[in-house]
């Protein structure tokens, strides 16, 4: 791959850049665009590579170390490519009371991976996460951005079946 194509792979698209500059009018500093910019990178690229962090630093006019620090601080940013489907199972108290561990062990048996791991085909990743703010539907998970409520092993199986 030539230098320019690798560069392109880590840069925000024109559309995202325009969206970001429009948003810039709402903030008195460019650094405040940090989370919005990182979300855009992750939306377009699936994760945030080192090169993409440098690109963001460049766009915001801040030093790259500030971007690295932010990416590593927040649980939802991926600094490594995640699985295609990231199954985030809540294991905080209300979900635990309603059987989160049963869901996690079912997933482990089914997919042959533990939390923080990705299946060999890159399709699934499991994460243990803290309270998702949906405890009335415990146990709960999110598959990428979407909630799955009132989980049972059967419901989860059906959901995973449905995924394209």
């Amino acid at each position: 791959m030539s230098e320019s194509t690798t560069q392109q792979g880590v840069q925000l698209s024109e559309a995202a850049r325009a969206e970001l500059e429009k948003l810039a009018k709402r903030y008195p500093t460019r650094e405040a665009l940090m989370l919005p910019a990182l979300w855009m990178v992750q939306r377009e690229q699936g994760w945030i590579s080192h090169d993409a962090m440098e690109h963001v630093a460049d766009v915001l006019g801040v030093s790259p170390v500030r971007v690295y620090a932010v990416v590593s601080f927040y649980h939802m940013f991926h600094d490594k490519p995640p699985g295609k489907y990231n199954i985030q199972v809540c294991h905080t108290l209300s979900c635990s009371l309603m059987g989160a561990e049963r869901i996690l062990s079912h997933l482990k048996d089914k997919l042959g991976i533990s939390a923080k791991e990705i299946t060999e085909d890159g399709r699934f990743m499991i994460q243990r996460v803290e309270c998702l703010g949906a405890c009335e539907h415990a146990p709960v998970c999110q598959i990428n951005d979407d909630f799955v409520f009132d989980l049972t092993p059967e419901l989860l199986d059906a959901k995973l079946e449905e995924l394209p």
Partner: peptide, 12 residues
């Protein structure tokens, strides 16, 4: 009056 949503990224 401008109102802007700022999306967090997972941190209690």
């Amino acid at each position: 009056l401008d109102v802007t949503i700022h999306k967090g990224a997972g941190a209690y």
